[in-house]
Nucleic acid binder design. Structure first.
Length: 847
RNA sequence: GCCGGGGUGGUGAAACUGGAAAACACGAUGGAUUCAAAAUCCAUUGCUCGCAAGAGCUUGAGGGUUCAACUCCCUCCCUCGGCACCA
């Protein structure tokens, strides 16, 4: 027997699998379908990370098991290739992102293939492929036509040095990540998607899916639903009103001032009434300069300024109260204005103390006196100083006061969400062009002659965004033009704005001159719907013609929903939420069949991060990055696979340990050596061997079938591997391994170490491929052991153990136990007060 | 501050419907094999006392429930992750 040579045999079997299309999902099949999805990677220049591998290998184990269980499995892979790093690389080196992407994806693919992952490469996708992003653009157009996309001026993070808009992730400590300049807020026109329309359903439908609790909690919090009341405050001698949002209308009698967010539009309208407007203006200007992150870090020190010359009126008691502007109130949440109740809200309390404002207690705790030197009392209690609501429980008053004000038309129950509309444009190059043009003629027509416009002449989106006209679907994709210079313009526009002959075009409606939108979509756009793309058939009429994807509802209906989706915890708030939203929209407009249901992913799991050796995060700067390719080269793919599954709980963060990989290698070498012990003659023997000698082994095999099967289902892959190690150690002790037992063993191991098991399967002379065998079923009768070790405890402490028949009756067990020498030592001269007998486990004497 | 995960040997961890704590690995020590090394095999390996038989202690800390607690309850500490002036 030659030595275990993973390099040679892994290449061999990868070749055979590929040649025989073993992992290709069938579009027509009598088998039940099973769709296993792992997040497709962003193909960076650094290549695959060991963390990627964890997700791929884990779900590869699942996919392989499902195939062996007889399912038609779809386990695809692709490239989420639009994005900033490639673009920045282009700016630095002048190498076109397309070229860099091609190189990177080839590298990633080579590494993935080298791991023996059972992806269906016939369905490979790439978000930067025009055939692919044609549909990304098409989805955007559907959103636009249905009124879910709109352009608005909103504040963004702006780097004055780079002259570029930054994503939140690119802002570190209020500074530009790249140049270190201070980031400011700047108003910019951006496309937004109305994800907030779906907030309620995105919460509700979490009940329909099997996501881990932490994912559900996280999504829920991100959406941030809050039920409360909006209350209108009159302003003295003014027509204008201020509407506030509160969840505690029961404290309204304790409201002693109002606070507006600095961006609140009413301030501008009250300009002439505000006697100290100069100072107010100054304050607003200062606070605008701060970006959001800075505001938060100053949470302890609240600042603000009173609007002198105007007063608001508390609707419950007619009291005149001052109005402040303070940046502890956020424009983006609620109404951008609050009623301040310093006695019962800590933030208001701090503010009131600083500016010497009245603090009126209106809720008294039931069983104790609240000490206001400690701060505000935010709990429930009994109303005081509240006129007709005096003595009422705060929980009840919450409803009553709201109703009472509602009858006077100054209050309304409302629901608010933290979730904001989704900023969907980037002033960049390497992304999907937004397929819209701006037409001045049409803009004028829509604005000025609304009445004359015929039905269906313009879509909802076109009417809502005057001048913005959709590119006709037949003209998709709007291809990203080649440029030589990837830097944004002086004004911070996309580099596309510089290509005049691309920008200048004809309006598809009026045929007049028009300009293309030069913003591109964010990198989420391509990953919003990619799981659908894997189901889509492609056609290519000739070599010279470009490939096309067909939106085939039947195929979507067959494969969706995704049965099992695994990805990083870092994507639960954005990608997962965004793609659920886009799916729901497509489902609403009938682009995906109704039968599938309102959710795209049935089950979602998350793998833990892999840290560098010693528990610190892997990073290029620390030089502790482990390249999976080196591991594969040195130890083999199967070792890499087994180690990554064995290293610890799948969902948990874990440090890399090369020594552990060596352990995995040793295990596989042991497995390799077992082939010498296989008894070829035992082929004819039935699995159920009469020889009592092998009963334990038989029982162990069945236990392992059960354990490995169940562990894979719950992603306890570490204990699955460990039980295979136990079995291997046991097989190693045998003089001879019956062939049939050996075949079961190889099948169980094959999802983890597919190359090795394939080779051994072949060497022993079994027919077919190991990875195409039927997954074995265990016999529960064989798992039950006939003899067990009964634990004898005295006062709960283990004192002895005896080997007995498994179903020994209590009185007999008691008799034997009490006659044991070690037990007698403890029970001598003592009275047994109580005996607890747990069949198959233990007997406990209380003395 | 709030929410969620977690705290078990020298290390990664296992056991969690309450029933032998430390499975399986890594590392370490000793031995076999070898001219030697690697590889492999065998033995030991939670801590303390003891020559030993054995005894006691041990799952972040403290308390409780129970015949029996890593597991359930209460109080607290630490740590990782998320959210955060959200009204």
């Amino acid at each position: 027997m030659e030595n275990y040579n993973p390099k040679k045999l892994e290449r061999k079997w990868q070749g055979i699998w590929e040649k025989e299309d073993v992992f290709q999902a069938k579009n027509k099949s009598k088998k039940l379908k099973f769709y296993v999805l792992v997040e497709f990677p962003y193909p960076s220049g650094e290549g695959l990370h060991v963390g990627h591998c964890r997700s791929y290998i884990g779900l590869d184990v699942v996919a392989r098991k499902r195939r062996m269980e007889g399912f038609n499995v779809l386990f695809p892979m692709g490239w989420d290739a639009f994005g900033l790093p490639t673009e920045n690389y282009a700016i630095k080196t002048g190498i076109h992102p397309k070229i860099a992407t091609r190189k990177n994806t080839a590298y990633f693919k080579r590494q993935q293939k080298g791991l023996g992952l059972s992806f269906d490469w016939f369905r490979e996708i790439n978000t930067t492929d025009p055939a692919y992003y044609k549909w990304t653009q098409w989805i955007f157009l559907q959103l636009f036509k249905n009124g879910l996309a709109y352009k608005a001026k909103i504040p963004i993070n702006w780097c004055p040095a780079c002259k570029i808009g930054l994503a939140n992730e690119e802002v570190v400590d209020a500074k530009c990540e790249r140049c270190g300049a201070g980031v400011v807020r700047k108003e910019k026109e951006q496309w937004l998607l109305k994800i907030t329309n779906y907030a309620e359903r995105l919460i509700q439908d979490l009940d329909l899916v099997d996501y881990s609790e932490r994912v559900k909690v996280s999504q829920n919090e991100w959406i941030g639903k809050s039920e409360g009341t909006e209350i209108e405050f009159r302003i003295m001698n003014q027509e204008l009103r201020i509407t506030v949002f509160t969840t505690r209308p029961d404290t309204l009698f304790g409201c002693t001032y109002l606070v507006l967010a600095p961006e609140h539009p009413i301030i501008e309208n009250l300009k002439s009434q505000i006697s100290n407007f100069k100072f107010v203006e100054q304050y607003i200007k200062e606070s605008k300069k701060k970006i959001e992150k800075e505001r938060i870090s100053e949470a302890e020190e609240k600042t603000g300024i009173e609007l002198k010359g105007i007063k608001a009126i508390n609707p419950v008691n007619g009291r005149e109260i001052p109005i402040f502007v303070a940046d502890y109130v956020l424009m983006q949440y609620g109404t951008g204005a609050i009623m301040a109740v310093p006695a019962h809200d800590q933030r208001d309390f701090d503010f009131a103390k600083k500016y010497n404002l009245a603090i009126i207690e209106v809720i008294k705790p039931k069983n104790f006196e609240h000490n206001f030197s400690e701060g505000a009392y935010e709990g429930e209690g009994i109303l005081v100083n509240s006129r007709r609501f005096e003595g009422m429980k705060s929980e009840d008053a919450r409803e009553r006061i709201g109703e009472w004000l509602a009858r006077q038309n100054v209050a309304e129950k409302v629901v608010h969400y933290k979730l904001r509309d989704w900023i969907f444009s980037r002033q960049r190059y390497w992304g999907e062009p937004i397929p819209l043009v701006f037409c001045e003629n049409c803009a004028v027509k829509i604005k000025n002659q609304r009445a004359k416009i015929k039905n269906n002449e313009f879509s909802i989106g076109e009417l809502q965004n005057p001048g913005w006209i959709a590119v006709p679907e037949k003209d998709l994709p709007v291809k990203l033009p080649l440029v030589g210079d990837y830097k944004p313009t002086e004004k911070g526009e996309s580099p596309l704005a510089k290509i005049k002959n691309w920008v200048n075009t004809k309006c598809p409606k009026c045929k007049g001159p028009a300009e293309r939108e030069t913003d591109v979509m964010p990198n989420w756009a391509g990953s919003n719907w990619y799981y659908l793309a894997y189901t889509m058939p492609r056609i290519q009429k000739s070599k010279s013609k470009n490939q096309k994807y067909i939106w085939d509802k039947n195929k979507i209906k067959y494969w969706l929903p995704v049965d099992w989706y695994n990805g990083g915890m870092e994507h639960t708030n954005l990608h997962l939420l965004y793609s659920r939203f886009i799916y729901k929209f497509l489902w609403d407009v009938g682009a995906v069949p109704k039968e599938i249901g309102p959710e795209p992913y049935k089950k979602r799991t998350s793998h833990g991060m892999i840290l560098g050796e010693g528990g610190i995060k892997m990073s290029k700067s620390k030089g502790n990055v482990i390249n999976p390719e080196t591991v594969v080269k040195e130890y083999g793919a199967d070792t890499m696979r087994v180690y990554e599954m064995f290293m610890g709980p799948f969902e948990q963060m874990i440090p890399w340990d090369t020594k552990g990989a060596i352990g995995a290698k040793r295990f596989l070498e042991k497995v390799w050596r077992l082939q010498n012990k296989v008894n070829q003659k035992s082929k004819r023997n039935k699995f159920r061997l009469r020889a009592s000698k092998n009963q334990n082994l038989e029982s162990l095999i069945h236990k392992t079938i059960k354990k490995v099967g169940e562990d894979i289902e719950s992603l306890k892959l570490n204990t699955a591997v460990s039980s295979l190690m136990i079995l291997t150690n046991e097989l190693d002790k045998q003089k001879e391994i019956p062939l049939i037992l050996y075949s079961y063993f190889l099948i169980l191991l094959s999802p983890f170490a597919p190359h090795l098991t394939e080779e051994l399967w072949f060497r022993v002379g079994f027919k077919g491929l190991c990875c195409q065998q039927k997954w074995p079923k265990y016999d529960s009768k064989l798992i039950k052991e006939e003899k067990i070790t009964l634990i004898i405890q005295i006062n709960g402490k283990v004192r002895d153990k005896i080997g007995v028949e498994a179903d020994i009756p209590e009185d007999e067990a008691k008799k034997i136990a009490l006659s044991q020498e070690k037990v007698l030592k403890w029970t001598k001269d003592k009275k047994i007060k109580k005996t607890i007998f747990i069949p198959r486990k233990l007997i406990n004497f209380v003395i």
